[in-house]
Each structure stands twice: as C-alpha cells, then as structure tokens.
C-alpha cells in the first residue's frame, strides 16, 4: 500500500520537473489556475509524466472530470491500491 503522503511526495517531484519550479508545493485545493506554467500543453505533459512515473493509466473520462490536485491524488491512490482483479 502506498500512502497519500507518499503520493504527494512523488507528485511534488513530478511538479518540479514539469513546471520547472522547485518552489511549488501541491496541495489538495490547488488547480491549474494557481500555477502560471500549468497550461494545456503542460497539463498533458503532467498527466503523461504521472502515468509513466507511477506506472498507471488514466481513462479519458477520468481526466475530463478532474477538479483539483486532491482529486488527482485520490485517483492515483485508487489505481495504485486497488486489489488485483481475478
């Protein structure tokens, strides 16, 4: 099991890489409006980077309904900690 805290920790690293800003601290309420560099291109980069680094895959519908960072973390957590189907 990966904890919410660990996800935030790794997400922070990814934010720093994608937005090229070491001072960003992702918080649950944060949205694209809060980060100047978070434009549509960087949004795609961010999602693809999260998929690559966490080794997960988002559904298109999940991405369309993303509200904020907290919601994104919930999604990651759900995917990482879901019991194997079988």
């Amino acid at each position: 099991m990966i904890s919410t805290e660990q996800i935030y920790q790794r997400l922070t690293e990814i934010f720093h890489e994608i937005f090229d800003d070491q001072s960003i601290v992702p918080t649950p309420e944060m949205t694209a409006d809060d980060v100047p560099e978070w434009d549509s291109l960087n949004h795609i980069n961010l999602i693809v980077a999260i998929e690559a680094r966490f080794k997960i895959k988002f559904k298109s519908t999940e991405l369309e309904s993303l509200r904020n960072v907290g919601h994104l973390v919930e999604l990651i957590e759900k995917k990482l900690n879901a019991p194997p189907r079988g």
Partner: peptide
C-alpha cells in the same frame, strides 16, 4: 512491459 491487473491496458516502463 508490465501488466497491471487493475487496468485495461499494458503499461510500459519508459524510464
């Protein structure tokens, strides 16, 4: 390539 049972597709490690 590693198969994640909770996902629909193969996810590839692209490190």
């Amino acid at each position: 390539a590693s198969y994640h049972p909770n996902h629909e597709e193969f996810v590839t490690d692209t490190i």
